[in-house]
Design a protein around this nucleic acid. Sequence first.
DNA 1: TTGAAAGCGCTAACAA
DNA 2: TTGTTAGCGCTTTCAA
Lengths: 325, 325
Amino acid sequence: MTTIKQVAQEAEVSVATVSRVLNNNGYVNEETRKKVLQAIEKLNYVPNAVARSLFKKQSKTVALIVPNITNPFFPEVARAIEDVLSSEDYTLILCNSDDQEEKEQKYFEMMKQKYVDGVIIATSTKSPTYLEKNGIPIVAVDRYINQNIPYVSVNNIEGARKAVQYLKNTGCKRIAHIRGPEYIHNSEERYQGYLTVVKDESWFHKGLVVNGRFDAETTMRVTEELLTSYPDVDGIFAGNDFMGLSVIKAAIKLGKKIPEELSVIGFDGISLSKYTNPELTTIEQPIYEIGYNAAKLLLDVIEGNVRSTFHHELEVSLYKGQSTK
Amino acid sequence: MTTIKQVAQEAEVSVATVSRVLNNNGYVNEETRKKVLQAIEKLNYVPNAVARSLFKKQSKTVALIVPNITNPFFPEVARAIEDVLSSEDYTLILCNSDDQEEKEQKYFEMMKQKYVDGVIIATSTKSPTYLEKNGIPIVAVDRYINQNIPYVSVNNIEGARKAVQYLKNTGCKRIAHIRGPEYIHNSEERYQGYLTVVKDESWFHKGLVVNGRFDAETTMRVTEELLTSYPDVDGIFAGNDFMGLSVIKAAIKLGKKIPEELSVIGFDGISLSKYTNPELTTIEQPIYEIGYNAAKLLLDVIEGNVRSTFHHELEVSLYKGQSTK
DNA sequence: TTGAAAGCGCTAACAA
DNA sequence: TTGTTAGCGCTTTCAA
């Protein structure tokens, strides 16, 4: 690789001058600028980003920490983020935390060592003090952390309310909820949204809420248990699309007709659910926009542009598949 | 951040000594090593990776270039790669090329500037000379490039043969193929595999092979056209799982019973196809292993460990869903 | 308008 | 066994 020094030699100027034309700051004579530009061209010079980082203490790099990129929600977020970053000549580092605080911390250590400029994170960590302490700009996506940390997601409570209300409107009389893990803020909020609609119904009882996890096996098992214990359930609000699809599978296995005997609604709007049969009715999040906004927000923070709002909740919308009446 | 200099001061030694204990090379007295370690502990020192990179001309960083991380095949590859990288204290950079050579080149430019140590790439670029020229270690995944470039994938021809043979064995008498884009090496190979099984069949004709693309709309449209033109088709080998699912959707739309009237088999084994109904029968690739091996291979190349074999084709296996008899 | 030189934090050759 | 120092490639202050 050619260095700034070689360019300086070729152009018969000092490295300082080359640096000036490179960064377009400081005075430089139009003539000499041309000479330098020619030398750069001739030698095929590109500045060394590492040397620059060392001096500037920043790296034009942003990290994304997700629980697992394999969860179909996150690739779309990642795509959006990478799109805005690369358009601004930033680079994206991908990290999988498996929801383990220990792994997150390890990534943060790396970030400090590499002068990573900022981080976008989807986390459920209980005590996020280390997040704030390490001084690197941070934006939360999908999962709320606390008031101090910028956040982009959707209003889960409102979305859940919409989902359950829709089931009710289409005639469901016994609506159950298979919820996500308790340690995840989202699951809690969606559960709250569910509650607001059903809590005063005469038929409502705690048995209609089932704890699930995101994996298919668990979801199918608890669904079968639910439908066996309460065969009159005619609507299920699943904690997310993944779970919604498993619910459908389990229900079909039990011989339930969907949507005639059982309506199922999910949450997320991951594109995969459009490929299934029946298509899953769901509360669609603007996933790409979430990532897009998070990245824009982070870049603003990094570059010191103040923003009035730090918390963004985007609009969800109802996507009607064939899993509901 | 504390620097090596401060540690040296604290421990009352020179920076060279600190560097020695840090990197565990060169002689250093047990006593002084302890002093240094204490100082490091006390000051909470972590070495600056950027400064190190500048000197070493390497960054403990690897890039992954995929067409689109949103394609469900790649997150699993990415996960595997990131797993092995992070276990070796490497960092993963994620890049989306949209199959555009121009974007790939831009990423390569960035990599050189940032001393990225190596790259894993899934590409269909026609003239990959720039890949070899830029001197950065490279491994191809999923898509073959040329003899000189290490490669990890599966034997597509063999897998396709297996798929079509299976359709035949289960009684299909008219087997069509909806193939992927021609510019993608994989699609071509899978098509070849299909041909080996059917080319000598009396019923075979060119109309049974349809050009598709990876998007759902196109696939559904061409499927409908195919089934309308040739209603006696009773088996379809789709170019990948995504297309397989779309084929099923289109067939159901036309009122075909699956698998009674039409068998469908895909290729890839992306986890999403297990969530659908019917589950897609498919040729399952060991996706995680592909990523895992690619990463291991790349690290070997980077660290100068010679390998005898540069091309790895892993075994595929038949996954029986309910979309075939 | 330009150049000399210090310094970002680290490693390694060389000397002691 | 340890320290001094040059240098990785760049930016920026200061002086000219």
